[in-house]
Design a binder for these strands. Structure first.
Lengths: 229, 229
DNA sequence: TGCAAATCCTACCGGCGAGTAAGATATCAA
DNA sequence: TTGATATCTTACTCGCCGGTAGGATTTGCA
């Protein structure tokens, strides 16, 4: 008897009657599916599993999605949309590069702590068909390039030490992405202090030794943590 | 017609005749399997696939391994053995904690750049049966705790700034682990300069602001890079 | 040389899971 | 009220894959 996540109950109830609500029901499927894909994996979650969780049968799912892959693709899309939107606002701000990076880290952690954010990182795009995989990887690459650009900004304005922005971006993204493997929302660890430590360690690592006034500076953390709220 | 990795040819040739060589052939299976599990995933690599790659048939594989899971478990084991051995020698050294961390990073990257090291990180232990998964996770946790202990050493000897060693260990391991997702041995990127950047950024981030003499210091990088060689 | 064990093959089983066919029932707009 | 449509179900198909039965062939030691 698999444990029943309380958070999934409302979606289950949505399918209790046959009232017409295509958009809402589609969304409910996505929310349920992403949860299950994260717990077990995509491969080990059958369409029957998802359907059962929602109190319907498998063919009913095919009324809302053409196939299993379409569900996964839309989950990816929702997740990357979150990241793109976040980057939009980070880029728009007029701040030193190092501060932008700190803001990015805090905001990214916030996104990762949600289901769709975690999905972008944890779900294996090798499960996808070639064209879909290609599209997903292109979006991931675009996000990576935007982070590199921010780091380059910081090197240009002198707030970030000279380095290969490509590798630096990998280090930053990697450190945070790994959270998706161990952090569980609702667990014992405090997301706020986690964020603080990530921002502190990584922006210290990036910063120029020449301006220690900025490095462990409160303004950075303050700005970053404000995004976390 | 799937591309044939040149590195797999020797293993293929091992099975060309029926000369008795159980240990060698077992090992050949592991090397071939880990490559294929990394390229496609474990779930998407069938026993037939592995057998075909080795120029034998599926039942022949079952002469060397009881089932598919046993292959995966042994791959894990070989990978974690590498990491454990590396930690043994790091811990044995008499150095400041921060330097040990730097050495760890460099050595870990070296391990990650090999197939079995990457496997420990990339292969999804949710594919395993419950008991096997439990064992694997216990080993992973042990490795994590050893890294935390090194960080605590550094805080005790003053080379590392005060922080939550649990989170710091996650940041370090995460940054490096992520390499397994993008680094390809034999690719254009130079492993030596990658290592240099990782060590520099992360040990700078860990270090106390009070002793900048150590932070971007050459001795750290030198010691760390010697391990890479 | 003979024979026990190791190596490997052909031919199968059984289960799981994605996806579909065909139709029943409920909803809602007119 | 009445159809057109949306929603959902039962009952399948079909291919893939892990694993096995049973036997053929080779190896290398005594």
């Amino acid at each position: 008897m698999p444990r029943q996540s309380a958070a999934l109950q409302p979606h289950r109830r949505l399918f209790a009657d046959r009232r017409r609500n295509p958009d809402g029901k589609r969304e409910a499927v996505l929310h349920t599916a992403v949860r299950m894909f994260l717990e077990r994996s995509y491969a080990h979650t059958s369409m029957d599993d998802v359907a059962t969780q929602l109190n319907i049968t498998k063919p009913a799912l095919y009324h809302y999605f053409r196939n299993k892959e379409e569900i996964l693709v839309e989950i990816y899309q929702l997740g990357t949309d979150l990241i793109d939107g976040m980057l939009d606002s980070i880029e728009a701000a007029e701040k030193p590069g190092l501060v932008k990076v700190a803001d990015f880290l805090a905001a990214y952690i916030r996104i990762i702590s949600g289901d769709f954010g975690r999905a972008v990182i944890r779900l294996d795009d090798r499960e996808l068909s070639k064209p879909a995989r290609k599209a997903i990887r292109a979006r991931n690459r675009a996000i990576d390039h935007r982070l590199r650009a921010i780091i380059e900004d910081g090197m240009a304005d002198g707030s970030i030490a000279r380095c290969d922005p490509k590798i630096a971006a990998f280090i930053l993204a990697g450190a945070v992405n790994w959270m998706a493997s161990w952090y569980e929302p609702g667990g014992p660890m405090d997301i706020h202090s986690i964020t603080q430590q990530y921002v502190r360690l990584l922006s210290t690592g990036l910063s120029r030794d020449e301006n220690p006034g900025l490095t462990p500076a409160l303004p950075i953390e303050a700005a970053a943590l404000r995004l976390v709220e």
